[in-house]
Simulated scan of single mutants.
Amino acid sequence: MKYCILTTGLAIAACSMSQPVLAATGNVTFNGTVAAICTLVVTNGSGTMTASPGLQSLSSHNAGGSPGTVTITTTGNVALSVGAPTAITVPPADITPITWSPTYSVAGAHTIAETGASSNLSTPGVDTVTVHLAGTKTGSDIFAAGSYSATVTVTCQ
């Protein structure tokens, strides 16, 4: 009996030593989504409009005028636009109609010639948006002396 017990013990020990340890593995899958976004940073929020020699145009395009600028960073697939001017102030002496026209152009990762219409930015990138504003009079109407101001909102969505 001793012999059988000893043999069985050796067989169990031999079996446990010859078996490799089983390795376990597992996979971890990562997913992510980046939404179509854009950020706007106003880099020059103070454009200047000057009067034309005939006083029928008040514009950032006229001599001495300057545009506003915005830096835009986008993932792409967004629309860029400028809204109609708001917070418009004119001197009390100016009683004739003014037609306001905001425009913009884009340079950087995208190139968009000056426009007032919405533009699609289909690819990612960083751009400088140059914003202009012009007010015009028609017929014999001219701008009166005094301070004028308006706000143009740049939108990216």
Rank of each mutant, 00 (worst) to 15 (best):
K2F: 00
K2L: 10
Y3W: 00
C4G: 08
I5H: 00
T7S: 10
T7Q: 00
T8E: 00
G9R: 01
S18H: 10
Q19N: 11
Q19H: 12
Q19C: 09
P20N: 01
V21N: 07
V21R: 07
V21H: 04
L22V: 13
L22R: 14
A24V: 12
T25Q: 15
N27W: 02
N27H: 12
N31T: 15
N31D: 07
G32Q: 12
G32Y: 10
A36P: 03
L40Q: 02
G47N: 09
T48N: 09
T48Y: 01
T48E: 05
T50S: 04
T50N: 11
A51D: 06
P53T: 14
P53Q: 07
L58V: 09
L58R: 08
L58E: 04
L58P: 11
S60D: 10
N62W: 04
A63K: 05
G65A: 09
G65F: 05
S66K: 11
G68N: 09
T73G: 08
T73E: 01
T74E: 01
T75G: 14
G76S: 07
G76N: 05
A79H: 12
A84Y: 04
P85L: 06
T89E: 12
T89H: 15
P91V: 03
A93H: 02
A93M: 13
A93P: 10
T96L: 13
P97I: 06
P102H: 01
T103W: 03
Y104P: 06
Y104Q: 02
S105E: 05
V106A: 00
A107Y: 05
H110P: 05
N120I: 08
L121A: 01
P124A: 02
P124F: 00
G125W: 04
V126D: 04
D127C: 03
D127L: 02
D127I: 03
T128E: 03
T128F: 07
V129F: 01
V129M: 05
T130E: 08
T130P: 13
V131G: 01
L133D: 08
L133Q: 09
L133V: 09
L133I: 11
A134Q: 15
G135E: 08
T136V: 15
T136Q: 13
T136A: 13
K137Y: 05
T138K: 08
G139A: 13
G139V: 06
S140W: 06
S140E: 14
S140G: 15
D141Q: 13
D141W: 09
A144Y: 07
G146Q: 07
G146Y: 10
S147E: 13
S147H: 08
Y148C: 11
S149W: 06
T151W: 06
T155K: 03
T155G: 02
T155V: 13
T155N: 10
